[in-house]
Design a protein around this nucleic acid. Structure first.
Lengths: 334, 334
DNA sequence: GTCGCCTTTGCAAGCGTGTGCAAATGCTGC
DNA sequence: GCAGCATTTGCACACGCTTGCAAAGGCGAC
């Protein structure tokens, strides 16, 4: 362990026989340096192992280059897929991602977010289901740009990226009816996340337009286990449904497993199932789940390109993306 | 958008009627401030919405408080679970996580890592399967502490956290034999990750000790699809195995699905299957996979507690954790 | 050679913070 | 009131970098 850890621009300057400013300008894009000195600096920097100190640069420029990702349920297939896409896009744009985990609800979220503010993050991307207003407020008040993914927020300023949840729900209702289903159900969690509620309301409305009622069942968090519980509740009814639209794929997987293994039902012969997200497991042959694909790469691209733009135009601060229906084998016909 | 974004300690000092040092000391643990001025400062800071600038603090202290997480395949169940645990532990310790995605192998990894060095990250945690030496070298050369999870590296300095892979492999070999299996196989990816190879070699050695040979099949990346391909290769052999130990749960899921749906085989009656990681899907009732649990929370706790310790003792720089066998229904008996 | 112009260079101020040092303050015991 | 001591406070420098400004340098035209 040497005490003197990092080399400074000063040392590079001395080695290259130029001034400290020249070193700084060499590593600042758009600065005026002659090719000759530039090369001398680069050589010296390479030899000494110099890296520009972004803490100091951020201090001067009042712009840290840090983007803060605020995520809950990181271990979940959909969230982690989105996280992967976002980090990749950010790296491509020369930004760096700071990750805030909001699973614990005991105020550690607030703490973590303050932490990010202390690092003067340029922007925050919220892909957490939590509808906690205080989080977004804190970001905006500290001059950060803000991207909200799959959330409902009518404030000016942040970029809002949403899917056509209600339209997708209508499409799947039609598909169910076309498959001959008459008793529709919707499986949801109790989370109350805006996008999940949009799917629910869209489905109910579309069914009503087709002259059908919908049994709505909600339980717990948005996970596999909740899907099993909802199946328990729906499949023990006298008027058992013959088609279920699940708010997420995880719910759908739990539902299908319970239907098949606990109630010995055949999917799709006795009951049709659809999900949302198109997580990897939906394509596994044990499920073959018909579902809507979240365009995670497009979402990430939209988010990052808006973040790195110099000017945020307030007029187009909403992006509405289309969720493609991925047809597999959990609905009859097709 | 106001031009003057953040309040500085100077402004807080003026509002509180004290010197700027007093403000600084108020937010520095272990500094000497009288309770009276301390309270004045806190009040003024609260009123003005002051947050200590960690860029500046890091510059002074030569210690940024940033921990860099270097991860590949973030979207994978096991990796994202570990990521979740790590971020949570880091936040509990007042550190902040910077996320580096190493999926792209086109040098963007190197770029991203340099990025982290520029931010003077105090330490890096590598949970990437990539055995790329240059990454670890770069971290160490720049004075970062380093934690390697499930990797094989005999260098001095970094903390190495490993599981008892070989021992686990031996235990599962015994379980297979006890279930009456005689033709053992091992399914692996071609990744060549040290921990995966340890499982393979441990399994082969244990089988040999029991007087049995092992058919080893390797294919592609460590994912579901590879499991299907390996099943294709193993189950079309004349000497079809009656027990398969898969290097990861994802491989096992793919293998089971192919065995059941493509080869119409019954698990565990015709073939026993075991995996490794205990991802969430292993417990889903379509799989009921008997597998070894990666103690992600313990791993994260060990990593973070070593990182935040003042002194790194070089004598105990290796942590070997036990992988519990989680018994489900993919092996007969039990 | 001299002038004018454009590019390159160095100087120095400043970003917001931590901290050693010395001065100031408060407190105790006489 | 005063000496003696512990605690608190402010000053000023340092951290590594960017950047405005003015001086220096290069170059072609006369």
């Amino acid at each position: 362990m040497s005490q003197k850890l990092f080399v400074s621009a000063q040392e590079v300057a001395e080695k290259a026989g130029v001034s400290r400013s020249a070193v700084s300008r060499t590593f600042t894009s758009g600065a005026s340096v002659s090719p000759k000195t530039r090369q001398k600096v680069l050589d010296a920097a390479e030899a000494l192992g110099y890296h520009v100190n972004h803490l100091a640069r951020g201090l001067m420029r009042n712009e840290s280059g840090i983007i803060c990702l605020i995520v809950s349920e990181i271990g979940t297939p959909y969230r982690s897929a989105l996280l992967r896409a976002l980090t990749q896009q950010l790296q491509n744009s020369g930004k760096v991602a700071m990750l805030i985990n909001t699973d614990r609800s005991d105020g550690s979220v607030d703490l973590a977010l303050r932490q990010a503010i202390r690092y003067r993050a340029d922007a925050s991307v919220i892909l957490s289901g939590l509808p906690d207003k205080s989080i977004t407020d804190l970001c905006l008040k500290n001059g950060q740009r803000l991207v909200l993914i799959n959330r409902d927020d009518d404030r000016e300023g942040p970029l809002k990226i949403n899917l056509d949840d209600a339209d997708a729900a209508a499409r799947i209702a039609t598909a169910f009816v076309r498959a001959g289903c008459r008793k529709l159900a919707f499986a949801n969690s109790q989370a109350g996340t805006p996008s999940l509620m949009a799917r629910e309301h869209g489905f109910v409305a579309a069914a009503k337009a087709l002259g059908l009622d919908v049994i709505v069942e909600r339980f717990g968090h948005t996970g596999y286990e909740s899907g099993r519980v909802v199946a328990q509740q729906l499949l023990t009814r006298k008027d058992r449904p013959d088609a279920v639209f699940c708010a997420t794929d995880l719910l759908a997987c739990g539902f299908m497993d319970a239907a098949r293994h606990q109630f010995s039902m055949s999917v799709p012969d006795q009951i049709c199932v659809a999900g949302f997200d198109d997580i990897e497991q939906a394509s596994w042959s044990s499920y073959g789940l018909t579902t809507f694909a979240q365009p995670v790469d497009t979402i990430a691209r939209e988010a990052v390109s808006w973040l790195v733009a110099e000017t945020a135009e307030p007029e187009n601060d909403t992006v509405r993306l289309h969720a493609d229906l991925v047809w597999r084998t959990s609905i009859r016909g097709g």
